[in-house]
Simulated scan of single mutants.
Amino acid sequence: MKRRDVLAGLAAVPLTAKVTAAQEAYPSRVVKILVPFGPGGSTDIISRLVGKQLETATGKPFVVENKPGATGMIGTAQVKNAPADGYTLLLGSTSTLAANPSLYKQMTYDPSDFTTVGVNGSIGNFMLVKPDAPYKTVKEFVAYAKAQPKPLFSGYGNASSRVPAALFEVTTGVKFEEVAYRDAVASIQDLNAGRVDVVFPDQVVGESYVRSGFVRALAVTSRERAPLFPDVEAVAETYPDYAIISYSCFSVRKETPDDIKKKLNRLVMDAIYEPSVMERVRQLGFIPPPRDWDIAKCDAFVTREREDWTRYIKLAKIEPQ
């Protein structure tokens, strides 16, 4: 072997060692968690819960930044355009990674741009009505709606609350007139005021309004009853083919180094199962996946949900905008 080749090989060893050491040291600085929605929603709450535990586990800051707009597309695109180094995490959701591709003709990103490194949990939506509404069950609601000379009004604040209502129409044969709102809270307020007849917000947003009696939960959209509301029927009890859930997750650009993705996977899944975080996640109504979910299982779950939501949207005959 030539002396030049030997020296080249020796020179390469420290460089490789340095790269490996740098990757093993992840994170070595501030990590940003970008939430593509405003503060206060379920995705925002969970991002802060998990982010705080990630700080504890790593000793490095995990800073949440809210970047709302365009049904989550503005913030999601920002993560797509960030360096693929693991220092900008996307708090992904049903809207951004499952529904938007079938609802909008022009997307600023593709869900396949990302790898999901952790799934926080899934949750059904509420089917909310006025407190004094004459119907007490899904069956009674459907009978009432079909007896009306005009469609009932359905309010929604985002894709995750619009599609459950549209799928309900297809499944039951009732007719709704859609009313769009800036967010789910505004639709709930108008429901109480009698301006719309039904809304399907996520349970985290709707919980306080249900418990206060401001509105009434007629049903949930998950296949089984919600653990926090065991007395509220699931739509599937009357219509077995109807079931739709929402989820949140942590994702990174797919080009992120594999060792960083694997480390994030363990950090996120362990953070969710930290007792204080798990208690709060369950209090919010989310059902976490098994702790041992690796990247392949997390990514497969998100892909399957996107396929399901594509089918829901087609069944509901919602045309992309």
Score class of each variant (00 low, 15 high):
Ser248Asp: 15
Ala11Tyr: 03
Pro36Phe: 13
Asp5Val: 15
Ala25Asp: 15
Ala82Trp: 12
Pro134Arg: 07
Val174Trp: 01
Val117Trp: 05
Ala217Met: 01
Val138Gln: 05
Glu279Gly: 07
Ile45Arg: 12
Pro61Asp: 02
Leu15Trp: 14
Leu54Lys: 11
Gly51Leu: 03
Val204Phe: 08
Ser47Lys: 03
Phe214Met: 14
Tyr109Arg: 09
Val252Tyr: 03
Lys52Asp: 07
Pro131Tyr: 02
Phe214Ala: 14
Thr94Arg: 13
Ile295Arg: 01
Gly213Glu: 14
Leu15Met: 15
Asp292Cys: 06
Ser160Tyr: 07
Pro14Lys: 04
Gln106Ile: 09
Val13Ala: 10
Val138Asn: 09
Asn192Ile: 03
Lys2Val: 02
Asp258Thr: 11
Val277Phe: 03
Pro257His: 12
Pro36Tyr: 14
Arg225Lys: 14
Ser251Trp: 04
Asn192Ser: 13
Phe153Val: 10
Gly38Thr: 09
Ile188Cys: 11
Ile123Pro: 02
Arg280His: 01
Val215Ser: 09
Thr137Asp: 12
Asp292Pro: 08
Thr43Gln: 07
Tyr239Gln: 11
Tyr239Ser: 09
Val235Leu: 10
Ala98Asp: 10
Arg211Asp: 15
Gln321His: 06
Ala21Pro: 02
Ile33Pro: 06
Tyr312Glu: 07
Ala219Phe: 01
Ala143Leu: 03
Phe301Ile: 03
Val302Ile: 14
Ile33Thr: 00
Ala8Val: 13
Pro288His: 01
Gly51Ser: 10
Ser42Val: 12
